[in-house]
């Protein structure tokens, strides 16, 4: 009865290799120690900062919407208009790029050009793109608009291309077999299959563009980010708190509404 083992150890699940397992584990621990040692925290400065941090928390809890309302509302209008126009233009540009980047319906040269544009747009942060467009178009929301429209292509065209590549090819064959031209094939066989997806993604991107519009103001591309930057620079914690609360509220509202629209589309 007692010849059964009384010890049992769970066999490793992810890293099963007996040699690599300890090497990788030690490597991770060593890296974390090394990385933590580079932090070089100036504790005195942090101690001083705690007081300021607390004032930010207070500003967040007792936001001041009124004393800077003119700046806030201007920034907000810039951000919102920038969001809408850049999303619309971004969608309009994403559709040709997305169709062109779908390997199953686009010819090879078009495919490579479209994929290259998407790759450039995706790999650079919005803020970096904004720096360049501000240098080109001057300060203000126009540079922000161009930035967000360009960034939308990278996001939307890529996902649209993926959606198109996943469609049911039998339907495409059927329309092609009935003698449809390339445009008719796209209109009758591709569009119905990807439209709900495209609408969902567009709404999601609208949400992202608003959030990003709050950031690119930091490098001079207009919007609520510029207002926020100023408020933080001037240590106006209660105004900064108000701006952050407005951003959160708009994002929440956008998410709530887009959830409803998505349900309604499907």
């Amino acid at each position: 009865m007692s010849d059964y083992p009384t010890h049992w150890r769970r066999p490793p699940q992810i890293l099963k290799h007996p040699v690599w397992r300890p090497i990788i584990q030690i490597g991770i621990v060593a890296y974390l120690i090394l990385a933590l040692s580079t932090l070089e925290v100036d504790w005195l400065r942090v101690w001083d900062g705690l007081d300021r941090g607390w004032r930010f928390v207070e500003g967040f809890l007792t936001p001041d919407f009124t004393s800077r309302w003119r700046d806030i509302s201007e920034g907000l209008v810039e951000s919102l208009t920038m969001t809408v126009t850049s999303t619309v233009v971004g969608i309009a540009l994403s559709i040709p790029f997305g169709v062109g980047a779908a390997g199953n319906i686009a010819p090879a040269p078009v495919y490579f050009v479209c994929r290259a544009v998407i790759a450039v747009s995706r790999s650079l942060q919005e803020v970096i793109i904004a720096i360049f467009f501000v240098a080109m178009f001057g300060f203000g929301p126009f540079a922000g608009f161009v930035t967000l429209a360009f960034a939308t292509i990278g996001f939307l065209a890529k996902l649209l291309a993926e959606a198109i590549e996943e469609i049911d090819m039998a339907q495409v064959e059927a329309v092609r077999a009935s003698g449809g031209s390339w445009l008719q094939v796209v209109n009758y066989a591709v569009e119905p299959q990807v439209t709900p997806r495209l609408i969902g993604l567009s709404l999601y991107r609208l949400d992202i563009n608003f959030r990003e519009s709050a950031v690119i103001g930091i490098v001079g591309a207009g919007g609520i980010g510029a207002t926020l930057n100023t408020a933080i620079d001037r240590y106006e914690h209660d105004s900064a708190g108000a701006i952050l609360l407005i951003i959160i509220a708009i994002v929440m509202l956008a998410e709530y509404l887009s959830g409803h629209v998505r349900k309604w589309v499907q």
């Binding site: 100036d42 400065r45 300021r52 941090g53 709050a214 930091i218 980010g225 933080i232 994002v251």
Partner: peptide, 17 residues
């Protein structure tokens, strides 16, 4: 989620340096 890491960084640079 609503606040980009760059904005968090802006706040934190002003707080902890």
């Amino acid at each position: 989620r609503s606040i980009n890491s760059l904005i968090w960084a802006l706040l934190l640079v002003s707080i902890v340096g």
